[in-house]
Simulated assay, not measured.
Amino acid sequence: MYILKMLRAKIVALSLIFVSVSAYEHTIADQCDWSGSGGGENGGVRPVYLRCARGTVLWRYPHGALRVVFSFPTSSTRNIPVSLSSLDFRTCVKISGPARVFLEAGRKLRQIYSPSDGKHEYSHRCFRSRKHVAALYMEAEDDYSFKSTKVKLQYDLELNSPKGGALHVPDEEEECRPCSMEELANAYCQSDLVATGTVTAVEQQLHLDAAELVLRITKILRQVQEAENNENIDITTCSKRSVRVRLPVMCDARHGPGEFVIMAKRRLGDLILVCAPRLETWEQIVREMDTAPCVLNS
């Protein structure tokens, strides 16, 4: 197949691209978003360098290929201990449009998206950086029926998990693991939403490889305001409002009686569960915790 032959040739060419990073860095290194059309000169690879915690790549009339390089913004690590600020990061993306997307893993390419891979475009596709950098190779589909469309990639970088990420286990298992007392305190202070409420349902979203907790809020304890066009995150102080919080389907979440404290973070327009202790457990932690990164409430 012609595309595969070209891809093998471009894998070899990637070693030359690494050398040219500094030539572009001074002009596009700190931007969050990129928008453009076409591809590299003479059908080559166009480099795109991004240093932001989140943003969007919009590729109109895609042709040829892009190499999108992510690195964590240094401005976001100013209040993070030195021991953590040098860690690698986790990137999650949402992708749609006529392109195949590959993750650079050493000198190999691992496909993470194609229009026909069977996964929903709202699925979160996550991967880890290598040596503080993550790079995606985006190749336009050679299908002329797609010429009037665009490729859209939304990304979100997480430097370190509120859970600490100390265990060497898959990300999904880490997200399913119950939080320790210290992790609960960190999650409370770092989460975008902390609210008490009851879980009215758990809905399996198999097309997203996820499940969603449907939570009826009784009280908002902490909320970070941010402009996002997503009804799931547009939460007001109005009581008894429902909100959806996503978690991996492998966590086998089930709902039962009682009130919980839901701690969630934003990722790609969705709320992702971090910790969910029972209210009585959290109240006891608030009473017993001697020190915490911020003031804890229940």
Rank of each mutant, 00 (worst) to 15 (best):
A134L: 09
V249W: 08
H124F: 07
R125N: 07
A210R: 10
C32P: 09
D290Q: 14
E280C: 05
W34Y: 12
Q225D: 09
M250I: 15
S85C: 12
L157D: 02
R267Q: 15
K147M: 07
G38W: 03
P73K: 01
P277D: 00
N297M: 11
R67C: 08
P248G: 03
S148Q: 06
G164R: 02
F127S: 08
V69M: 14
E283A: 15
S114F: 09
S239C: 07
G64F: 03
S161W: 08
T237G: 15
G64S: 08
L103V: 04
G44Y: 11
V48P: 04
T77S: 12
P73A: 03
V261W: 04
A140W: 03
R107D: 15
A166S: 14
S76G: 03
L159P: 05
N160Q: 11
Y155N: 01
V199W: 01
G64I: 01
T198V: 09
N230T: 14
A264Q: 00
E25M: 04
D33H: 00
L271D: 01
L221P: 03
T149K: 05
Y188M: 07
S298G: 04
K219V: 06
A9N: 09
A9V: 11
E183Y: 04
D156M: 07
A201Y: 07
C251Y: 01
D142Q: 14
C52L: 06
D30K: 15
L167A: 14
Y24M: 13
A23Q: 11
W59M: 00
M181W: 14
I3L: 13
P277L: 04
P162H: 07
A211S: 15
F127R: 01
V57C: 10
S20Y: 10
L296G: 02
A9L: 12
K10Q: 14
D171R: 15
C179K: 00
S86K: 09
